[in-house]
Design a binder for these strands. Structure first.
Length: 332
DNA sequence: AAATTTGCCAACCGCAGGGCA
DNA sequence: ATGCCCTGCGGTTGGCAAATT
């Protein structure tokens, strides 16, 4: 027996919302609220819409302070870094970007940002396919699998982005000026997470020097946090629920699923030439001409804002210290 | 100029999980 | 403990507009 439908589909209007419907919904919610019952709401207003549809319309379009389009470079970077860390948890990513909806971010990622950041992989694969044998079997009779068929799209994208951020020529980890400014409370918290010696983040550092707290953060963020959050734990549990409550619950049920690490491990077992098909691996050798992966289009090394990773102004504006590096909220 | 392809985005769908009786 | 209801989420689709052939 299937699940009961949430509404009478035959008598429910679908498709684009008319201005009149928008006005009705908006006026009602602004006056009475949702009443914590979206299902009953359309009947109260006299809308022939499914409650879910009303909710979606309100959340994605009608509610106050919604921003549409025009993503800034800063927002791009936040989306990118969070996608690397936590994957397609659009609602969590949206929570870090005031005025943005999960749907907006999802659409933006799928239609623009992903192509902007990963577009060259596609070309690379197309070129490879056009220049190599189309015999799907290798000489041993074993079906040849490219990395792209072994790693899931999401894992592959995140791996590529991760590798790119480690590129020493534009390296986020090595470039002090690209590190986000930590608020005092966040700094204290990170020290709590890993009590080993920390240098002050305010210490003036030379370009490329790796010191202290940010080194820990970078390890925590892009290696350990991602590993942990994606099932690449190696016995560690940096997402201890006492430390990172909002993410710990999300990521601890990975039994039985193919992990990101598992996919990567399989990928790296492939012949070198298979691995080398990806631009991120080719370019990680820092050869001068290939080093600007991130800059695929407009983001060349001259125009990249070194402060683009500093989203603390955005985070502060919400009244909570939301550490996008760790991906959790810290009420203060 | 017409036909076709591509890009974009709003909206839908189905599933999972939480709350409650 | 169980089942129902509702919400929230992420993946997918459909349709419009712009770009290309």
């Amino acid at each position: 027996m299937g699940r009961a439908p949430c509404c009478d589909k035959a008598n429910v209007k679908k498709g684009p919302w008319s201005p009149e419907e928008d006005a009705k919904l908006k006026a009602y919610i602004e006056k009475y609220g949702t009443g914590n019952n979206w299902i009953a709401l359309p009947q109260k207003i006299g809308l022939k819409r499914c409650g879910k549809s009303c909710r979606l319309r309100w959340l994605n379009y009608l509610r106050p302070n919604i921003k549409h389009g025009g993503f800034s470079e800063e927002e791009d970077n936040i989306i990118c870094s969070l996608y690397i860390s936590i994957g397609s948890r659009w609602s969590i990513i949206a929570a870090q970007l005031p005025g943005r909806t999960d749907n907006d971010i999802k659409n933006y990622w799928n239609t623009r940002l992903k192509k902007k950041l990963l577009g060259r992989r596609k070309n690379s694969n197309i070129n490879r396919l056009s220049t190599t044998s189309h015999d799907p079997k290798d000489t041993n009779g074993i079906e040849e699998k490219s990395c792209s068929s072994i790693l899931s799209d999401s894992a592959l994208e995140r791996l590529q982005l991760h590798m790119q951020l480690q590129n020493p020529n534009i390296c986020f980890y090595n470039n002090v000026s690209m590190w986000p400014k930590l608020l005092p409370l966040q700094e204290k918290m990170v020290q709590t997470i890993n009590p080993r010696q920390f240098a002050s983040p305010s210490t003036q550092l030379g370009q490329g020097q790796k010191v202290g707290i940010y080194e820990q953060i970078s390890n925590l963020n892009m290696d350990n946090l991602m590993d942990s959050s994606l099932g690449f734990n190696n016995g560690r549990n940096l997402l201890d629920s006492t430390i990172v409550p909002s993410l710990a619950g999300i990521e601890q049920s990975n039994e039985g699923i193919q992990t990101f690490q598992g996919e990567i491990d399989v990928g790296f077992q492939q012949p070198e030439e298979s691995i080398a098909e990806f631009d991120c691996f080719k370019e990680i050798d820092c050869s001068k001409n290939n080093s600007i992966w991130w800059s695929n289009d407009q983001l060349d090394s001259k125009s990249v804002s070194l402060n683009a990773w500093d989203c603390t102004s955005v985070l502060r504006s919400k009244g909570t210290y939301e550490d996008y590096v760790l991906g959790y909220n810290l009420e203060c």
